[in-house]
Amino acid sequence: MNLARLLAAISFLLMTGIALSAESAAAGHGKESNCIDQWKERTAALAAEDWPQLSRIAERYIKTCKGVFGTESYSVAYEEAAIALNNLGKASQALSASDKCIGAFYANSACHVQRAQALATLEKYTQAHAALDKADRLITHAIEVGQRDLNGAKNSLERELFEARLGHLAAQRSHASAIRDRYFPK
């Protein structure tokens, strides 16, 4: 994972998960606070590219934090498990995590990108190509929505959030392109 993609992912995670959940933690909600701490740990493991730790922490979050912050943030834990498993060379497990990610929140385009990576590694090229095409369509749609949101931002915090989301989507597009270039050269 290159530094730009990593920073975009961390920015997205911080802006959408932790920042929006801080109010719950401040109110003294133990489970929410614990899940935020786990989210921070996942972010640190992702930044360090410590794939065994990321896998372990993501699995713990999946088991203990279901329903705490909603399906979109929950799907990110499956996404990160898939990232870790793909990087550990465990493509079958990465595919399973990707499918669970898609089941948790279909619109998380990163789930589809990780699914494509796992399928390509497993030499299931037709399915990998289809997953990449789907990811590209979801990314394009999310970028269009994100650009509209950015244009309608009411304050600097909203602008910052929407810019972070767009950066995260650009990183996903870059990763999908790298997979496409590696396995499906023109």
Rank of each mutant, 00 (worst) to 15 (best):
C35L: 03
G146Q: 04
A94T: 05
H168D: 13
Y74R: 01
L46N: 03
A176R: 14
A84I: 01
N2F: 01
T140R: 10
L95K: 14
H129L: 14
G70M: 00
A110T: 08
A164Y: 04
R115E: 08
F69I: 01
L7A: 07
G89P: 02
S174M: 14
C101D: 03
Q114N: 13
I179F: 10
A81D: 08
S21H: 00
T140P: 01
Y183T: 02
G17L: 03
N34H: 15
K124H: 12
A84T: 02
L6N: 08
A47T: 10
L54E: 03
H168Q: 13
L169Y: 08
K186E: 13
S177R: 15
E79Q: 11
H175Y: 14
Q127F: 09
C111V: 00
F184M: 07
K134H: 12
I143A: 06
E158W: 06
F69W: 04
L46C: 05
A110Y: 11
F12S: 00
K66C: 05
E80H: 10
T126Y: 09
A142Q: 12
A82T: 03
V68I: 15
E59K: 10
L88S: 06
N108T: 00
A19P: 00
A164N: 08
A153F: 07
L3K: 10
G17R: 08
A26E: 11
S109V: 02
D181M: 11
S11W: 01
A107N: 12
L7I: 04
A44N: 12
A130M: 08
T64Q: 10
N86H: 07
Y74E: 05
K40H: 13
A142P: 02
R5S: 14
A44H: 11
A4M: 08
A27R: 14
N151D: 15
E123M: 10
L169W: 07
K134L: 14
T140Y: 06
E23C: 03
F184W: 06
F184H: 06
L166M: 01
D133C: 09
E72M: 15
S174Y: 15
L3G: 00
V113H: 01
V68F: 05
G89C: 02
N87Y: 12
E72L: 14
K63D: 14
R148S: 12
S98W: 02
L122C: 04
T140Q: 11
E160H: 13
R42F: 05
L95D: 07
K66R: 13
A8I: 01
Q117A: 13
L88I: 00
R173K: 15
E163D: 12
F69Y: 06
Y74V: 00
P185E: 09
H168V: 03
